[in-house]
């Protein structure tokens, strides 16, 4: 098919216009000309089609024999961490299937990375040191919390027991004290003793 042919001098600028390669003055000239010249508009569309066809030609892979002895040593860490540009990741992956040298280097890098990543975290070390030196004893806090819970339960039991219709205690205080005293004994013998004493006082007014 023959392209549009006409005598406009501006026609010569249309490819450069498509490629963004015009000077400011030339750009103004072409833009204003395209407002009025139907021939140039038609030519512009034809050139754009030709350019699109060229730019969408398939990009061919290079045959292996053309690229001998290429290795990816410098990129392997980034490959391991998934930090290569999107297009390069599959290229390195494909290369790895064929190249013993790069594959072995990748295994070594992976081992080194695993070793570094397995190092204990600094916060954990600091915490352990605190425990060893009894700088921040954690147990008293829990003990006082449990003792407070028992005391609260006893108060509830006493209130229930002192009600107008004595149909027996809502809570079996003996069982209660044994159960909770036993649990407390794990944490604090002193608290267990206090709890038993309180329960006995309540059951024998």
């Amino acid at each position: 098919m023959a392209s549009v042919t006409h005598a406009c001098a501006v026609g010569e600028l249309l490819s450069a216009y498509l490629d963004g390669e015009l000077s400011r003055d030339e750009l103004d000239t072409v833009v204003s000309h395209l407002d009025t010249c139907l021939d140039c508009i038609a030519e512009f569309h034809e050139l754009r089609q030709a350019r699109t066809m060229l730019r969408t030609l398939p990009r061919l892979e290079v045959p292996d024999r053309a690229l001998p002895d290429i290795h990816y040593g410098a990129e392997l860490s980034a490959y391991l961490d998934g930090e290569l540009p999107t297009g390069e990741q599959p290229v390195v992956f494909a290369h790895m299937a064929l190249c013993d040298r790069c594959r072995n280097e990748l295994y070594e890098l992976d081992a080194a990375r695993t070793a570094v990543r397995s190092l204990p975290r600094l916060e954990a070390l600091l915490e352990r040191r605190h425990v060893d030196q009894n700088v921040v004893p954690l147990r008293p806090k829990r003990r006082s919390w449990v003792a407070a819970s028992v005391a609260a339960a006893v108060v509830v039991a006493v209130v229930s027991f002192a009600g107008n219709e004595p149909q027996g205690p809502v809570v079996d205080l003996e069982v209660f004290s044994v159960q909770h005293g036993a649990r407390l004994s794990v944490q604090s013998p002193a608290s267990m003793f206090d709890a038993e004493l309180t329960a006995a006082d309540v059951s024998n007014p």
């Binding site: 392209s3 249309l14 490819s15 450069a16 490629d19 034809e46 050139l47 089609q49 030709a50 350019r51």
Partner: peptide, 9 residues
Amino acid sequence: IHRGRKMLR
């Protein structure tokens, strides 16, 4: 480039 593309077209 311009003439080449025109010839292709």
